[in-house]
Design a protein around this nucleic acid. Structure first.
Length: 283
DNA sequence: GCCCAGGCACTCA
DNA sequence: TGAGTGCCTGGG
């Protein structure tokens, strides 16, 4: 892969395993808008960029080469060789092969931990369009420039009623608790990087509204813990369907099988499977 | 009008 | 320790 400046944009050529639609619409992030089939606006790391994918190159608009190197390269996980990851998973079984073939351009993003944490608190009992709407409401109302996601400090200064104006419902209390813990360093988000995954998960779960599933999403999508296997109803459904003869199975058993089968790449496998399950009516 | 959605907290055995 | 239930809200 090579990349170069072209005025106010950066062009990437010779890329592999990158499909902007699959990446954004596989349920891992919520701050994007579709402009056309191959172009999206993306809000992340307090910036708004436009990504347009052509057959042989990708255009990152409003991105300098330096920004690409310091922010977006990592955000889009270009440090990971997905060809290698897929080759490894491919050997595991036919199910994961189908899932990979269905969306071979999926990548796991490296998102901002704070925004990711809040996003997945909001995600409980919610569908994706509504999650997106709520996050946008919050950003417009309480974030800088009416576009940035509020900082922990900004959010800690709000009351439940103010958040409920953004349609957060019962999650407002959870969000305030998260903001208070993070802004006072009772929960040190940066510090989680140094911890073992199980310990980091335990720390995340000290926040109200963060249980096993939400913490695993945060660990996978913001802390690069590719071995975790967030198991929501969709993943549960696809795992039961393909690996347990359609029988009701506990999350523990599903995790056991996932770790045994996919090992260090379980999180990436999960994302292929999740997307596959959601897009296939057979489940 | 009713039911449910990509969980979690809380309560009560 | 595990099962049962309520939760905001909007769309099918």
């Amino acid at each position: 892969m090579k990349y170069y400046d072209d005025g106010n944009k950066t062009i990437v050529e010779g890329y592999d395993s990158f499909h902007i639609q699959e990446i954004l619409e596989c349920g891992q992030c919520f701050r994007f808008e579709k402009i056309s089939n191959d172009a999206y606006d993306i809000m992340a790391h307090r910036k708004k960029i436009t990504v347009t994918q052509q057959q042989d190159h990708i255009v990152f608009e409003s991105v300098t080469k330096q920004e690409f190197e310091t922010i977006w390269m990592h955000y889009f996980d270009f440090d990971t060789d997905y060809r290698q990851v897929k080759a490894t998973l491919w050997e595991k079984d036919l199910v994961i092969r189908d899932a990979i073939e269905y969306a071979p351009g999926i990548r796991i993003l490296n998102q901002d931990p704070w925004e990711c944490l809040l996003s997945f608190i909001i995600s409980q009992n919610n569908r994706i369009p509504r999650i997106k709407q709520i996050i946008q409401n919050i950003s417009e109302k309480y974030g800088d420039n009416g576009t940035c996601f509020p900082t922990p400090m900004q959010m800690a200064g709000l009351c439940e009623e103010e958040l409920k104006l953004c349609k957060t419902g019962f999650r407002a209390a959870y969000m305030i608790d998260a903001a208070q813990k993070v802004s006072t360093s009772a929960l040190d988000l940066n510090g989680l990087n140094a911890l073992e995954t199980t310990e980091a998960r335990k720390q995340l779960m000290t926040v109200k509204g963060i249980g096993p599933k939400v913490s695993d999403c945060i660990l996978l999508f913001a802390f690069g813990r590719r071995e975790v296997f967030p198991t929501d109803v969709w993943v549960k459904r696809v795992m039961e369907h393909f690996y347990f003869h359609g029988n009701e199975t506990s999350i523990e058993h599903i995790h056991e099988l996932a770790y045994k089968k996919f090992g260090e790449q379980a999180g990436i496998a999960q994302q292929y499977l999740f997307h596959y399950a959601r897009c296939n009516a057979i489940l």
